[in-house]
Design a protein around this nucleic acid. Sequence first.
DNA 1: TATTATTGATTATATTTTTTTATCGGGAGG
DNA 2: CCTCCCGATAAAAAAATATAATCAATAATA
Lengths: 302, 302
Amino acid sequence: MLSDSMRVFITVAEKKNFSKAAKSLSLTQPAVSFQIQTLEQYYQTMLFDRVNRHVKLTAAGELLLDYAIHMNNLQAELERNIQQLTGHVKGELLIGASTTIGEYLLPHVVGSFKKAYPDVNVTIQIMNTNEVAEGVNNKHFDLGIIEGPCEFPSLKEEKLLEDELVVVVPTNHEFADRKEITLEELATLPYITREAGSGSRLLFEQALIDADFDIENFNMVMELGSTTAIKSAIVGGLGVSTLSIWAIQDLLKLGRIAPLTIKGVRLNRNFNIILNDDKFQSEATIKFIDHLQKEDIQSLLK
Amino acid sequence: MLSDSMRVFITVAEKKNFSKAAKSLSLTQPAVSFQIQTLEQYYQTMLFDRVNRHVKLTAAGELLLDYAIHMNNLQAELERNIQQLTGHVKGELLIGASTTIGEYLLPHVVGSFKKAYPDVNVTIQIMNTNEVAEGVNNKHFDLGIIEGPCEFPSLKEEKLLEDELVVVVPTNHEFADRKEITLEELATLPYITREAGSGSRLLFEQALIDADFDIENFNMVMELGSTTAIKSAIVGGLGVSTLSIWAIQDLLKLGRIAPLTIKGVRLNRNFNIILNDDKFQSEATIKFIDHLQKEDIQSLLK
DNA sequence: TATTATTGATTATATTTTTTTATCGGGAGG
DNA sequence: CCTCCCGATAAAAAAATATAATCAATAATA
């Protein structure tokens, strides 16, 4: 176990800022100053250069940080070993997830995981796929779950399950009773899209290109930055869109919308778990991935 | 830096006894109990089996101890590196020394060492050669300095300087003005000896054997367990003895005694530094050995 | 077998350490 | 020139940790 002052030191070294380190540690800035001063007195040397507007590690600070990180890794390893030995899994689990997964899939999975491992504190941070991958890459997240493939070749990717985008229309829509729709028909309807750069939009546009269909033919009426907003817009009769089957379960059960497939177009992608093999995997992480893979997630789509 | 609770844990694991660990840490036993309980709560498992009359590490405790020792070594390494970087040497230095060295040689050397490195806390424990070697072997001492060779082949031995035993007589003695004495003459004098097993006595007896002289011819009048006691006895006119030149400097300067060599007999031995290479050498240890070897110790014999 | 000594746990109190609150001062940026 | 950002400092409060006193359990001793 590292001493408190070392944990504070590591945080300050990461953030290069006493006040931000304090916030991240739920301390006040003077408390951080005090801990750093304690270390500096102990080692009889400055650990940070207090340059104007930011702090910078001294040579001694760099040295200390090296060892601190090494010791921290040992500690993580120790905790995993003890948890394996005692069967008592606990600790923090920080997951990065892209929107659909974080909003619709994970809440259920985390619920059942917490039943099995009540002492693991799970936090989900929702952001776009690239940001998740970056967070996994720089070891901020214990694991990431993203829609589609990962851009970082250094990360390990494992398929979790298949996702599918379907055309969604309100129940009172003229096409609501049909199972399928053609691209030409879809192009006649007012279409709502996600913002540029969204994974869903990219997938849809690529599918149109693959089908040799010009996007210009579409009747785009709105661009919305959130799936929830799009769903509200569809229910409100403002248009139709293509959404992940995972995102529409609630409205489907309420009978407010109807899903349609597009004739000749498959809008499929994988939900993938991404991991950074350089980061030491806590027992909680391992157990969560286990849980993800064993749990019959498909049954949530009943 | 390890947390306090870990340091307490290591001590308890070493001593296998809460109360003794407390004493060695200058704490009370309840404080130790508290720290161990804190750890046990953190890891949600017992670390010690409280068997009757002693405690024993559990499997989890063994695991924790492994990591704790590893982290402790890292910490020692870190401190040495930082002290090398900053030039500021500090910390504890625990030296085991055999009697003559500990009483007559080291006090001077430590004095000048402390001038150069005031923040190193030097402790000298005086005991017989074998106990010193054992203490170095089990990593209790940072280094040992002994009279004569070391019995532990695993320890590294470095010659510090040569010692010589001389016959010591009071200034008012009939031989006081001579430089040399024969074994036969010495055998006629009342002779005071150290206890059996003492390094000095062994060296003397071996020299007699080498010179084909029967110890039985000697006129042993007294056996004393301390060099200081022998010196008092000599000054008091109770007899003569052979003592290390290092042990007699004070009385020599006071003009109370006279040293004589024995014709045809050389009573020489080495003072040796012994080290355990498996123990991480602190910067203070390195600097002290440096100091020992550079200091003109012979000049103390002026 | 009774008695004493040793060991760790417990509890209430005291002490020490750490944190917060409030405030200052230096330098960068508008 | 003024304001904001950032870390230092001092006093007070809060929290963590230690101690003193005592207990219960067990083993060694008589």
